[in-house]
Design a binder for these strands. Sequence first.
DNA 1: TACCTTGCTACATTTACCGTAGCAATACGC
DNA 2: GCGTATTGCTACGGTAAATGTAGCAAGGTA
Lengths: 106, 106
Amino acid sequence: MAKQAASGNVRGSRTGRPIMALLDLLGRRWSLRILWELRGEPLTSRALRTACDEASPTVLQSRLTELREAGFVELGEAGGYGLTPLGRELCETFMPLHRFAERWRR
Amino acid sequence: MAKQAASGNVRGSRTGRPIMALLDLLGRRWSLRILWELRGEPLTSRALRTACDEASPTVLQSRLTELREAGFVELGEAGGYGLTPLGRELCETFMPLHRFAERWRR
DNA sequence: TACCTTGCTACATTTACCGTAGCAATACGC
DNA sequence: GCGTATTGCTACGGTAAATGTAGCAAGGTA
């Protein structure tokens, strides 16, 4: 049912509801984490991997490609991944999550 | 490396950073979508499945269990899944995402 | 030259998810 | 009682995705 994402296809996108496409994109492994780790300064692929608990480079590369196609992440000319203005805007949306998580704690 | 979540274990939880555990939990398939679909009134498991594009009940059940253990979702006595006050609070955090997605559109 | 680090990929294994079917429990009527 | 629907939930075989390790070519630096 759901197609590969490397081609830019996103589950739920056919519904015409952008929120579904966004929720699907962000609901993939490491997507949220990547955005979170890039909230500060740009990171090299290696540094990003370290920040993400040594997640396998295969997935990270997939997610980075998807996030780049979505326009949230970009690869700087001097090397290193950083957030685009759009990506930064998206990241701001998640910031309240930090405070929420602290109160949640489980 | 990451253990099953049915036991309450969440990737990143050992770092002691709740935000990581939260990002991991929400970064699993259908987690965000489920919270989103429950934002209104409670839904029965079947209705929720319909709302989620007929996602397989296996995953939905897993996610519901995890979200229940996290305290975001509860199963009402009269049947049907709904958000807890905490879950509602979390969902509010994602509401700005809707507007963002509309502007994003890809 | 040799040595780094960069972004990125191959490949085999493990895990997660899908799709279909069906369970027990609870309620409806009839 | 009976049959028929619901409910939440699970088994199982097959497929897709993530893991973990290794290593590539390109570029820099000495």
